[in-house]
Amino acid sequence: MGVVHVASRRRRPESVRGAFPGATVVDVTSRGREPWVRFSPFYPHGGIPVPFSPGVSAASVEGVWQALKVFEKGDVDAGKLGVTSMIGIKRTVRRFGAVLGHRAGLQGTTLLDYVAARRQIYLPTYRWVLEHRVSDLVETLRAEENLVLLDYTANGDPEDTSTPLSHAALLALHLTGRWPGIPVL
């Protein structure tokens, strides 16, 4: 594996090409092209194990994240686990009030704070997809010497809550063998 960069999908394509001459540019967002869209957390792979919920699976990583989110005016929503359209998955504070945390499983009693939820729910779920649903595409990207992954954010640090976590940054860490220490599903 060569060099992997993460850049904003919002940048003009010519700006990205100018900043990273000769690099292969891959949009891994839900707006990316096949097959790269499969790296999006919204992509409905199906059969994704839901952490802390033995025997329960989800269509997408984002479905797991949203299903286990707990709000002032709303608990878990198992219906989000089956969403396959890549739209209508998000649950918002506008509708449900402040986020209280993420439940450790559909039937769990423990409420995880944001960082703990990233480490114990989001990261292991996304890594499971990388290892079990898109491993062939991961190997294709590993063959690149100079790679730019496009995403809406570039934050790959689960501890940094100032911006959303970037799945492209996590993919870059996975490609280069620097994945954050987290439980594996």
Rank of each mutant, 00 (worst) to 15 (best):
V4N: 09
V6P: 04
A7R: 05
R10P: 00
R10Y: 12
R11K: 14
R11Y: 11
R12N: 10
E14H: 13
S15V: 14
A19Q: 15
P21E: 04
A23G: 04
V25K: 07
V28E: 00
P35E: 06
F39A: 01
F39D: 04
F42Y: 13
H45M: 05
P54L: 03
S57E: 09
A58G: 11
S60F: 01
V61I: 12
E62Q: 01
V64F: 02
Q66R: 08
A67S: 14
A67E: 04
V76F: 10
G79M: 07
K80M: 08
L81H: 02
V83E: 15
S85A: 15
S85N: 09
G88K: 07
R94T: 14
R94E: 15
G97L: 14
V99H: 08
G101H: 11
G108F: 07
L111F: 10
L112S: 09
R119E: 12
L123V: 10
T125N: 09
Y126F: 14
R127I: 02
L130W: 03
E131L: 07
L141Y: 07
L141I: 05
R142T: 02
E144S: 13
E145W: 04
L147Y: 03
L149Q: 06
L150C: 06
Y152C: 01
N155Q: 03
G156S: 06
G156K: 01
G156A: 08
G156M: 05
G156W: 00
D157T: 04
S162A: 13
L165S: 07
A168N: 08
R178I: 02
R178D: 03
R178M: 02
R178G: 00
V184E: 14
